[in-house]
Design a protein around this nucleic acid. Structure first.
Lengths: 243, 243
DNA sequence: CGCCGCGTTGAAGAAAATCAAAGCACGTGG
DNA sequence: CCACGTGCTTTGATTTTCTTCAACGCGGCG
């Protein structure tokens, strides 16, 4: 499983040729395991790897000088993480684990070879990055233009959609090991207000939350409240070079 | 000028080989001019080109069903626009002009060839996309964790930095043809509150605003108020394939 | 002139933050 | 076993921030 996670992720975008697979397998060996609460890479310091999250949960965070913190993303199994950070001399964000995680590490130094020898892999990495950027766009809209309650609904719908992708067998129950304090940093709210919104979510019968486990009772209502758009799901893979 | 804008942009990331330049020049011809108020591409519809903004101003917008609108970016001369949109079957965002603009259009259909034949160009496109993503990260933090006034300050500092990049001869005076209504959609504020923040900006002696023209009196104070981070400026180009 | 878009101001109200207190589960040490 | 502290959750009261509504000045322009 760990040795094929990079491979598995890339394959989900397009079928790979044997020589591309061989290249990926060279790095599939570099699997690392971290316990909960580990800073995998830190904001402001150079990042030397990009990762595929093989198992477990982690989140991308941005800490402000004054102690404020914004969570940029909750990573799902299969997500590519750190491809933005390796492009900068100092990481824009930090990555912290929410559980024990297995990460498949791809050394930054091999990006050059990938772009030269494996155009198909490069195109896939580009496409995956654009997908992540589209998620960031949704987040900007969420924070800029929606109420606290709608933000929470949007978060749930997005997590559900992404959970489906990571594991097609899922139902409307899903659990992410996320304390409410962290959820408030995702939603750009105070912790107290986040608790109130969770309460309302339950009162309205949309979904319930208990210790990191969400149970969605009415996904359609959640999507309706926040005007959820699925455009980010529909990537155009047609231009990826043939194998 | 128009015929070399793509080339000029890519060269700003790394020196190009003659064969890369030749490839870019094939598309340098496709320069289009649009009047103010034009929708260059529309949210929800397929995008067939990516662009380099050769001259003028435009902005990236996300319209919600309920009529709300969020502005994702104000594009500066030299910016690559639409590389995210071409990766989706339906554009995530729309692009509208703020003035007469000249755009250098690169057909999506040629991405395949670029990735296969021009790894250096592909790497540069990737790097430029990561820079734009870093700007989005700053926007998420801005909207999620900062007050109205700090958001405005951050906007000014960012516009100033990016203006420097686009035109190194600039000073602390700069003008973007931006009505306050649009500014409010950038900052995620109501129009009225935006006016009040502009007033305060003037009262505090940080900067003044008149009809799209900003004059910054104290850039350091602006940067201080919002805790501006320059990390996004420092790209690591070291891994780009040699020419 | 009268209309309209843009900027400004004031007042009222809603949304969310902040402050404060208390309950509850859990682990630790006595 | 119980006492105690600590972190997580809940609730209420208060304050701040921002939105909304409304009115008005002002300049351009048909």
């Amino acid at each position: 499983m760990p040795t094929t996670c990079l491979e598995h992720n890339f394959s989900s975008y397009a079928e790979l040729a044997e020589r591309d697979l061989t290249f990926l397998r060279r790095f599939g060996e570099h699997t690392v395991t971290y316990p909960i609460g580990t800073d995998v890479f830190e904001q402001g310091t150079p990042a030397n790897h990009l990762y595929v999250l093989a198992s477990g949960w982690c989140f991308v965070k941005y800490d402000e000088r004054d102690g404020g913190r914004q969570v940029l993303d909750i990573c799902h199994g299969g997500d590519i993480v750190g491809s933005r950070e390796v492009c900068f001399q100092r990481s824009i964000c930090g990555l912290e684990t929410l559980s024990t995680v297995e990460l498949c590490a791809f050394p930054k130094a091999y990006l050059t070879e990938m772009f030269v020898e494996h155009p198909r892999l490069s195109a896939i990495l580009f496409l995956a990055s654009m997908r992540r950027e589209a998620l960031l766009v949704e987040r900007v809209v969420n924070l800029g233009r929606r109420t606290a309650f709608a933000r929470l609904c949007h978060f749930l719908v997005e997590m559900n959609q992404r959970g489906d992708r990571a594991n097609p067998k899922r139902t409307d129950k899903f659990s992410i090991p996320i304390p409410a304090s962290l959820l408030s940093d995702v939603l750009g709210l105070s912790e107290v207000h986040t608790y109130r919104m969770l309460k309302q979510l339950n009162r309205d019968g949309f979904a319930s939350f208990d210790n990191g486990r969400f149970i969605v009772h009415n996904m359609a209502a959640l999507a309706e409240v926040c005007g959820f758009s699925e455009d980010y799901l529909h990537l155009d893979r047609s231009w990826i070079p043939a194998a």
